[in-house]
């Protein structure tokens, strides 16, 4: 599933952060979740690597598994033998379609609230120890938090535009959006007439602007 806003800068930023996280750890996969506090769920917002297809937009309970520990305690954690605990493994498999051996997870904290989780699955063999891993995932979490905030802010703006009449000086401008949406589908004669009317409107506004400037 390709998310509807997959090509916008905000989502590309988040995606690039999980790609970097995966690369830095030499990991099988990396993901960012947004916490939907009202529904008590975590939502995949970006995923890179094994099992990442079709994950964006999927949800699971926010108190389950290591991500749940991280949301609740606000602390970064590592689990090294996930697959040895059947319940833990099946919870993860259910939400990701992939059962890792190890997980590094860090909370995404913005304005004092946990807004999500960054997870890295199956770090590759390397010289670093766990304490360094926790430090690095913390730094990446800071980036992911900002990326997530930008994406949420964009969505909030889009929702506002769709749900409320656009206002400019108290005027309802939804007519402009409707014209923009329907003009490409109009026949040639109608489209031409609409364009002429819009040109007249533009000239009127230009005249009004000049008039105001003249009084300034």
């Amino acid at each position: 599933m390709t998310p509807p806003d997959s090509d916008v800068t905000e989502r590309s930023l988040l995606q690039s952060i999980v790609e970097v996280a995966r690369s830095v750890f030499g990991a099988a996969a990396a993901s960012v979740f947004l916490l939907d506090a009202q529904r008590g769920e975590l939502v995949f917002e970006a995923a890179a690597g094994d099992g990442s297809d079709d994950l964006v937009g999927t949800r699971f309970p926010s108190h389950v598994g290591l991500a749940g520990w991280v949301v609740m305690s606000g602390q970064s954690l590592i689990v090294d033998d996930v697959s040895e605990v059947p319940q833990f493994a099946s919870d993860i498999a259910e939400s990701t379609g992939y059962v890792p051996r190890s997980i590094v997870a860090a909370p995404l904290i913005r304005h004092g609230e946990c807004v999500g989780v960054l997870e890295v699955l199956d770090r590759g063999t390397r010289d670093r120890g766990e304490l360094d891993d926790v430090d690095i995932v913390g730094m990446l979490a800071t980036e992911a938090t900002l990326g997530l905030e930008l994406l949420v802010r964009l969505r909030s703006l889009t929702t506002d535009m769709q749900s409320e009449p656009s206002q400019a000086g108290g005027l309802d401008l939804t007519i402009l959006r409707r014209i923009t949406e329907r003009l490409p589908a109009a026949d040639e004669q109608t489209a031409s007439m609409v364009m002429r009317l819009l040109a007249v409107a533009d000239e009127l506004l230009t005249g009004a602007d000049d008039g105001r400037r003249g009084f300034g």
């Binding site: 520990w69 305690s73 602390q75 970064s76 954690l77 590592i78 689990v79 090294d80 033998d81 996930v82 040895e84 605990v85 059947p86 319940q87 833990f88 120890g129 766990e130 304490l131 926790v134």
Partner: peptide
Amino acid sequence: GVKVRVAWPGGAQILSSGNS
């Protein structure tokens, strides 16, 4: 706080790391 064998609900144990 690194590679600590800790209790997990349901009688299990896991190997986990963290200041927690």
